[in-house]
């Protein structure tokens, strides 16, 4: 995905997705103690973990507002895992930062922080509902070893990024990366590689 400054300029004065997502929604907030900017992102997420609505409210510079406008636009239709993967890459918003005033990478990072916080609040609620007795590998998104192994086997996944895309595992704090790596290796062994 690539954002351009031209895209940004159009949303400068009329940002998209201002407001709050329909209830029940999951909210993430971020505040900068350097410049005082604040924003919140709210997400409405369906049963298949897909974001159906993303809205924001912000008191921050134009770069922040435009970044929030673009990012909320981008995550609609994506699974929470795909959105989280996007949120971990503030550099995708770099084009806006480059076209605008200097030293604004933090502004884009703040938007990503709010998005990840909203997704974390969602995954937190999912985890609360978790009542299975199998081992949880990705605690952020409540994905079990069985699910990960099945996804890898059925879809012939090769990398952690593949796993994250298909079932959200690894999209949060990433502390389960070594465990996912182990499962990938196990599956390769099973397949005689």
């Amino acid at each position: 995905m690539q954002f351009s400054f031209e895209q940004a300029a159009g949303q400068f004065l009329n940002p998209k997705n201002v407001g709050d997502a329909a209830e029940p929604s999951f909210v993430g907030r971020a505040t900068s103690f350097t410049c005082g900017a604040a924003l919140r992102i709210s997400l409405h997420i369906d049963e298949s973990q897909r974001i159906t609505e993303a809205k924001f409210k912000a008191a921050g510079c134009s770069i922040l507002v435009v970044s929030a406008s673009l990012l909320t636009d981008e995550v609609v239709g994506k699974t929470t895992g795909e959105a989280a993967a996007l949120g971990q890459r503030p550099d995708v918003l770099e084009a806006i930062v480059r076209g605008g005033p200097e030293n604004r990478a933090d502004c884009a990072a703040l938007v990503c922080e709010a998005l990840l916080s909203a997704i974390a609040s969602y995954s937190g609620s999912v985890r609360d509902e978790w009542n299975g007795d199998e081992a949880l590998i990705c605690t952020c998104f409540g994905v079990s070893e069985t699910t990960i192994a099945r996804e890898i086997q059925e879809k012939q996944l090769r990398t952690i990024a593949d796993v994250t895309r298909e079932c959200n595992a690894g999209a949060g704090c990433r502390s389960c990366y070594p465990l996912i790596e182990d499962i990938l290796d196990d599956q390769k062994r099973v397949n005689g590689e």
């Binding site: 004065l13 410049c35 005082g36 900017a37 008191a59 921050g60 510079c61 134009s62 507002v65």
Partner: peptide, 29 residues
Amino acid sequence: EGENILAHLDSLGIAVSTGSACHSTTKQS
């Protein structure tokens, strides 16, 4: 946010300035 007010007023043909030095390297008010 002041910078937003400034941008909107600018688009409406009114020039003012903000009290924040957000565009400077310190990014502080």
